[in-house]
Amino acid sequence: MAKRKNKKGMGLTDFFSILAIALILVVMYSLLKIFVGQSTFELKGESSRVENIISTIGILRTPINIDGIDANIAELIAVSEFDSSKRTLLEKNLIELMDNSFGTSRCSVICIDENKIESSGCGTFQIYECPLDAVVISSYDKNIIRVAFAYDVKPLSPVRIP
């Protein structure tokens, strides 16, 4: 004769088993959360760094006519180091270039050594930082000039006092 099953006992075992499964799930989820961390590598960040360098080279290669001579933006930068009258021309051309290529709805910044030029999309009373990744170009006096460009730059929290 088959032994009768204790229904109450079965219920308890089931209850503890389900509880154990739930506990295991919670513990394992916590362990995964703790030990299997996230990568610090940001694809978006890396992508914008590469894009900015490519854009900087593109800007520097842009042809321009300086006093009837065919040159490029890099040469205009080198000339303006010595000829201050060319600085206004350089600034005007760079702002135009940034506005036309990257739009006026976002802020683009180009830094030539310490000198910062902002596009029309930048807030007048906002402070923007120079980009970190720079392209090195040569100057006429056998020196180097660092040119760094970034678009869609976010302003720093403090604002300029008007």
């Binding site: 992508s47 590469v50 290669r61 890099a74």
Partner: peptide
């Protein structure tokens, strides 16, 4: 892949520097 792209841009910038120089 990004390392490769970054190296490409570095080399491109160096070639541009040599051209200008």
């Amino acid at each position: 892949q990004f390392d490769l792209l970054k190296t490409y841009t570095k080399a491109e910038a160096a070639l541009f520097y040599i051209d200008q120089s």
